[in-house]
Simulated assay, not measured.
Amino acid sequence: MLNAGNTLQESVALQRAALKKIIEEPLRDAAQAVAAAWGSRAALNAELGRLFPGVPHCRYLYVMNIDGVQISDNVGAAGVSEADFGRNRSHRPYMRESQPATGFLLSRSYITLRERRPGLTAIQIVRSATGAAVGFLGADFYLHDLPLTRARFEEQHQWRQLRGDPSIRSQVFHQTRSESEMDRQLGTVLGVVEELMVDHGMYHIMLHFSSSRAVYWTLDDPYRYRLFDIQALVDPDTCLVYPKHPYPSDALVPKERIRAILDTLSSLRFIDETFYLRTGTLNLFNGMVGLTFSCDGSHYMPWDEFLKRDVAFWLGSV
């Protein structure tokens, strides 16, 4: 299942909305029940223990006064923990966000202090019988406990440019390209790579031109990356040890265009003695080409858009 067409931020917002629907009502009901036990640590702990099973997927429930100081213990599936009684939570991320008028807040995710893993906190205002705000009910959740829809996020296929290390950019005019072993035998290297991608199941390649090596992934062993040194890359016999594999029907890059993409990477390697390609990547399934130049700037773009760009474009963009 894909979140097709959504940005990363839009996909996150959809997940947060789904979580809010699960958490908000149980926490609001729990806050109303907690109000009756206000003022007694023992009574609050007892009430939290009774309420805890009704707040789905929660790790801990606890109560804070209006200043954010915890006035109950932590209550969880294992029982009562006294570790945080009296703790001032006013500076934690979830207490520094603006409280909505409804009195319910689902915080942004943050890294927890104890387990140092992503979590989030839901806060509900607790009101007295007269309607005055007396404090907060807090509920902590770990992201790996939550039953998110987990629709797979699909990145949008569009050109993205990312600037690199400023210290490298500032020194770019003081460097020139040094010819590598891969540069000297690039025709052979690209012939080997094309053969492996078209007929032998290699679907992702990362060519490190300056250091004369490549990192790659294959369909027969997709979870592990492998490394080619220059000796393997310049020897066509390397192709003999990889089984024949039909070209994947769901690849976004037509196999007839792989060579043109590789040749364009080669051209960018020699585009200029100061601005030149250091690393080039190609993934057949998402159809994206990745480029990192000598100035440490990086570009990621769809293969067809990449082939439309001429030398003048890249000299103006890097």
Results as ranks from 00 to 15, higher is better:
Ser211Lys: 12
Asp250Trp: 03
Ser267Arg: 15
Asp235Ser: 13
Met202Asn: 02
Arg259Trp: 00
Pro254Trp: 07
Leu233Ile: 03
Leu240Pro: 01
Ala251Gln: 04
Gln231Asp: 15
Ile205Lys: 01
Ile261Gly: 06
Ser249Tyr: 05
Leu227Val: 15
Val241Tyr: 08
Ala214Gln: 04
Leu233Tyr: 04
Ser211Gly: 01
Pro243Phe: 06
Leu268Thr: 04
Val234Asn: 07
Leu207Asp: 05
Asp263Gly: 02
Val241His: 10
Val253Glu: 11
Val253Asp: 09
Pro254Ile: 09
Tyr216Asn: 01
His204Ser: 12
Ala251Ser: 14
Leu262His: 06
Ser212Asp: 06
His245Phe: 11
Phe209Ile: 11
Pro254Ala: 12
Pro248Arg: 09
Asp229Trp: 03
Phe209His: 07
Pro246Thr: 08
Ile205Cys: 07
His245Leu: 01
Ile230Trp: 11
Asp220Phe: 09
Met206Ala: 10
Leu219Asp: 11
Ser267Asp: 14
Asp263Thr: 02
Ser267Val: 03
Leu227Ser: 12
Asp263Trp: 00
Lys255Gly: 03
Ala251Glu: 06
Tyr203Asn: 08
Val215Gln: 09
Thr218Asp: 04
Met206Gln: 12
Pro222Leu: 07
Tyr247Val: 01
Val215Ile: 14
Trp217Val: 07
Thr218Gly: 04
Pro222Thr: 10
Ile258Thr: 06
Leu265Ile: 02
Asp263Met: 02
Arg213Asp: 09
Glu256Ser: 14
Glu256His: 02
Ala251Asn: 03
Lys255Ile: 01
Pro254Cys: 09
Asp250Cys: 02
His200Ser: 04
